[in-house]
Design a protein around this nucleic acid. Structure first.
Lengths: 122, 122
DNA sequence: ATATGTGCAAACTCTTTGCATGGAG
DNA sequence: CTCCATGCAAAGAGTTTGCACATAT
């Protein structure tokens, strides 16, 4: 059973305020403004639990450490340039991919990554 | 300038034989069957160089260590369980996602990751 | 009252780097 | 003969775990 602690509220607050995906260390730093004694371990443990139950979403930029954000319901697609390896975040949402998962797999969200060449790399 | 060494050949051989993306440690283990003294550092250095010049492709799965494979052109969808973090490969190919990229971005391929709960994690 | 949450330190995993030796060209 | 490549050990990030204490319910 989950309890509402000062630490947990500070973590959620940090994520709600920032408006962009945060790294665990950033969550810690923001959270410590509210709860000075907050520890990195606590951040990780809560991130893990929240991600498991869906109240937090893990966003992944290839080659970078994990980022976390509150669920937005949006599917912003990534684009990775094959030449310069730069990662871009396209603003326009990608459509749902129609897909029939194997039995007993429940799809809750999706992420699309496009590969190609960016405007700087012909 | 790149040289053809026993180690480098063993690494490429391991990737060619396996038929699935491999973690660096797996490349090491397979490669050591051919070159017993092969070191993990060498695997990492070669992976890095090959990925930079395109003779190797890095596959990214959120929350998972990096996987590498020889370029295939195929794309199978992946599924990541929010509870156990396990990555599954769905056998059936996902349909192309229709998407209009910003000007001067050329999309050459795509990858889809589904998130949800697997058959073991209700 | 009691089970979950917290903080610290240490352990762990994955990856990179420094340096002397080895081998391809 | 020259460089690039290799292997070892150690360093560095990011993340997890063990344990005693704190606290929400």
């Amino acid at each position: 059973m989950e309890r509402s602690t000062r630490q947990r509220r500070a973590i959620l607050h940090a994520l709600a305020q920032s408006g962009r995906p945060l790294r665990p260390i950033e969550i810690l730093e923001l959270g410590q403004k509210e709860v000075p004694g907050l520890g990195l371990t606590t951040v990780y443990r809560n991130i893990r639990q929240m991600t498991a139950d869906g109240s937090l979403v893990r966003v992944y930029y290839p080659g970078q450490p994990a980022l976390f954000e509150l669920p937005t319901g949006k599917f912003l697609p990534h684009f990775i340039c094959r030449s310069c390896q730069q990662v871009y975040y396209f603003e326009e949402e990608a459509p749902d991919v129609p897909y029939d998962p194997p039995a007993n797999f429940r799809i809750e969200s999706q992420e699309v990554v496009f590969y190609g060449h960016c405007s700087d790399c012909p």
